[in-house]
Design a binder for these strands. Structure first.
Length: 191
DNA sequence: CAAACGATTTTCT
DNA sequence: GAAAATCGTTTGG
């Protein structure tokens, strides 16, 4: 099923992985139902040297523990007490970098996702936004620490042609000072 | 043990 | 465009 190999995630260049994830398909299995979509918006979090990153200066807490695992691990945490945010851990064990997935283009399990989002039709906000897409796919804190090589949640080649990549600054990280200006956000849409 | 704070979303004006 | 909603995690006393 063309699952991406662990070596894909273990790249020490987190921005390269963030770019390469565009156009890949993220899939989640819940109770035999598969939901998923094409990744169209990502952000890189560069670990110890990035003030916007939870693991800045090797800060280590129970919450961000999975960021220290080897590339290909799932990092999910709760933001604003309400939203589950999904990240792919990159680089090698002990180097806490990761890519946050901000938006997808829905492809699999639309019915289930509509139910998860309590919506009757797909609109602009359906799977756009880090909290919105995890709600649609059914990603929760229970997925934190899982391997992307497993069957519950994984990423595979989609074969979809993507348009040009738009680069920008990350959202909601004003507290990070000058690091908030880094061009670490990447967007692209299927062509 | 109390208090402040979000890698956001939704709703209201 | 502004503001509320809402609670686990982190920090400080």
């Amino acid at each position: 099923m063309n699952k991406l190999p662990l070596s894909f995630y273990q790249n020490p260049d987190v921005c390269a992985v963030a770019r390469e994830l565009l156009g890949k398909e993220l899939l989640v299995n819940s109770d035999g139902v598969t939901t998923g979509g094409i990744i169209i918006d990502t952000e890189a979090y560069a670990g110890a040297c990035d003030r916007a990153c939870h693991s800045y200066n090797y800060r280590r807490t129970p919450r961000n523990e999975s960021m220290y695992r080897s590339g290909g691990t799932v990092y999910v945490y709760i933001c604003y007490g309400i939203h589950h945010l999904f990240n792919v851990v990159t680089s090698e064990e002990g180097d806490p970098q990761g890519v946050m997935i901000r938006a997808i283009h829905p492809t699999q399990g639309i019915e289930q996702m509509l139910a998860n989002r309590k919506k009757s039709k797909i609109d602009k906000t359906f799977t756009n936004g880090p909290g919105a897409l995890t709600a649609a796919l059914g990603i929760t804190i229970a997925h934190n620490g899982l391997s992307l090589e497993g069957d519950r949640i994984y990423i595979r080649e989609s074969g979809v042609k993507m348009g040009p990549i738009k680069v920008g600054t990350r959202i909601g990280v004003d507290y990070a000072g000058s690091d908030a200006l880094l061009p670490y956000r990447f967007c692209s849409v299927p062509q």
